[in-house]
């Protein structure tokens, strides 16, 4: 047990030193990188390693008779979580989410330190000491708190009420509910049932399973599936349509959506918000092809009421592309990102 805890403590100390080093620039900030495609699990795993490390440290300190006060364990662990979220994760997490995480981790720390009576007593003892003020030191602390707390609260209130020159927060509905049907170039498409006419197998029949096998693999590298190169001149059927869609994409869309389809094209940062990132699992991967068809055809100007504040400069592409071209470009977007369009069956 002691050996296990020692290993845990070693990992904890190393991790902590590395994190501090990376924050203060003592060691390069990319020493341990968050790897694209694995970042979500990596973050959770790192936190698990830290918890194991801190447990080991606490165990070893206890066994050496230098127990770290439970109060400070709780406070510092919470501070550590906030530091990790603020400095480890890049790009920066918006404040609203950090506030949510901060509250949850605060509750979690409270649950931990008050899970049993003994721990709870240990945790609250320093607080009670200050409140009771039986010693000169505690009395001074209590007086300091009496002065500082109103000042802090006052300062916080002042900053909250102070007029800001920043643009206000907008709660934007990124994917508003689509209409039941949409009319493009004189033809009505029912969004729930329409299909991409170019998602076909070698026999020319609609076949999602066939096209799914030929898309780019996800994860690091984004490799093309074997014998599935749309730019092969012999490519026929689905792959040929993907190539044609790609040509349309690079002639029209990549200026904003980027050549890697990640929303970081040449003009992207001229817009606010920047164009959609198709490689994110929260965009086209969550939507039906017909939804994309509707959005591409109608653009920002065709957003419904629910799409308030209609913050999109996407042109209504039905004015520039044929229906077939729109379907093909959508085919390319799914192929390139390695995502499957949502289906309901």
């Amino acid at each position: 047990m002691k050996a296990l805890m020692s290993v845990g403590a070693l990992i904890g100390v190393l991790g902590l030193l590395m994190l501090i080093g990376m924050i203060f620039g003592v060691i390069p900030s990319n020493t341990v990188r968050l790897v694209e495609g694995y970042m979500p699990m990596q973050v959770l795993s790192e936190l698990a390693v830290f918890v194991a490390g801190f447990t080991g440290l606490s165990y070893l300190a206890n066994s050496m008779g230098i127990a770290f006060p439970r109060f400070w364990q709780g406070v510092l662990f919470w501070v550590f979580i906030q530091t990790y979220l603020k400095f480890r994760i890049y790009p920066p997490i918006p404040f609203s989410v950090r506030a949510m995480y901060g509250t949850v981790s605060f509750v979690a720390v409270f649950m931990w330190v008050s899970a049993n009576e003994e721990d709870w007593k240990k945790f609250r003892q320093p607080i009670l000491n200050v409140l009771d003020a039986n010693t000169g030191f505690h009395k001074a602390l209590r007086t300091m708190y009496l002065i500082l707390l109103p000042l802090l609260i006052g300062g916080f209130s002042f900053l909250t009420m102070k007029p800001s020159v920043d643009e206000p927060i907008e709660l934007r509905t990124v994917h508003p509910a689509p209409p039941a049907s949409t009319k493009v170039h004189g033809k009505t498409y029912t969004l729930q049932t329409s299909q991409n006419p170019y998602r076909v197998n070698l026999e020319g029949k609609y076949d999602q399973a066939y096209s799914n096998k030929l898309i780019v693999e996800q994860g690091m590298g984004r490799l093309m599936a074997p014998n599935a190169n749309p730019w092969d001149e012999k490519a026929e059927g689905y792959l040929k349509y993907v190539r044609e869609g790609g040509e349309i994409f690079f002639q029209n869309c990549h200026f904003c959506h980027g050549d890697n389809l990640n929303g970081r094209g040449l003009h992207a940062f001229a817009f606010n918000p920047i164009p959609a990132n198709f490689t994110d699992p929260g965009t086209i991967a969550q939507l039906q092809e017909t939804f994309i068809f509707w959005r591409v055809a109608k653009g920002g100007i065709g957003l419904p009421n629910e799409g308030f504040p209609w913050a999109s400069v996407m042109p209504p592409w039905e004015q520039h592309l044929t229906t077939d071209e729109i379907w093909k470009v959508i085919l390319f977007e799914y192929w390139h990102t390695g995502y499957y369009p949502r289906t309901w069956d």
């Binding site: 973050v43 997490i93 918006p94 927060i169 918000p273 920047i274 994110d280 965009t283």
Partner: peptide, 18 residues
């Protein structure tokens, strides 16, 4: 929910980790 400044700093509507 984010300010336009946070949106720009993040580089898009979706956060790559979160």
């Amino acid at each position: 929910v984010m300010t336009p400044a946070e949106l720009k700093a993040m580089g898009g509507q979706q956060h790559p980790v979160l």
